[in-house]
Amino acid sequence: MATATTTQQPAQVVQPQAKPAQYYLDRVIRYALLIGIGLVLLSPFILSFLGTFKTNREILAYPPTIIPTEWHPENWGRVWETSAGPGATFPRWVLNTIILCLVNIATQVLFCSMAAFAFARLNFPGKELVFSGMLATMMIPGAITLVPGYVLIAGRLGWVNNYAAILVPGAVGAFGIFLLTQFFKALPKELEEAAYIDGASRWQIYKDVILPLAKPALLTLVILTFQAQWNNFLGPLLYFQDASMYTMTVGLSFFRQQYQTAWNLVLVGSMLNAIPVLILFFLFNKYYIEGISYAGLK
């Protein structure tokens, strides 16, 4: 694919006349494909965003309109006033989602980095075993732990309608530890050795040397944890039965059943859920991509 620019000279040697025409044809096809795929991938978002400004009659009319005939920006305010019972309002669902995300990020960053420090920098009996055991747990299908998880968390521990049902099992994860371990291993050891000579403890090395150096990897973990928790559906669906405990995702699915005809409001809610993640992705897409690429390295 890089033919056009990187192989200019050899190409001229082999086929002196054929190249320019081929070059321009290649470019046209390539940009047409890029723009075509881009439009297909973005059009559901664009159509939904425009749909949020329509009346409910217009949003379900046939033939559908792309641009609203009348603009109703107040739809964006109406969502915040909808309620599914006492205390179960849309703002409350946003708050629940934010609380889950913040606590989940804090514990993931702390516990994953601690474990990764042990794997990357300390020697201890059973290290290989624990590490490969950790990788093996990543292969267990979620369906297998779903049933006993529900029995334990909802039944034995009684964490129905309790943030703990999501936050305790998800406090630390194998993927985060793996990601940080790979990053920590690649860090130079000189600074730590100097710190050990100065009499620093292992906790101080972890806190004052490794963590500051590992900021890019920690940021990757923060972003991926945020996205996973913000979009989490099955967990809150299983354990949050009271409508005041719903997160945005569960609230939205409830919303759709409850306000079957209010598609404009369902779309506003959907956009309010999608926009923060999309903004974060636009700002930090380098970190997202590193995280996904790491996932491919296991």
């Binding site: 795929i37 991938l41 973005l42 978002f45 749909g51 979009n231 559906f233 959907s270 999608a274 992705f281």
Partner: peptide, 19 residues
């Protein structure tokens, strides 16, 4: 642009596509 659908939640994508 290509990656945007992948970061959006399955719930939001489902809602949009039901519509």
């Amino acid at each position: 642009v290509f990656y945007a659908p992948s970061v959006t939640s399955s719930v939001v994508i489902s809602m949009i596509f039901i519509w």
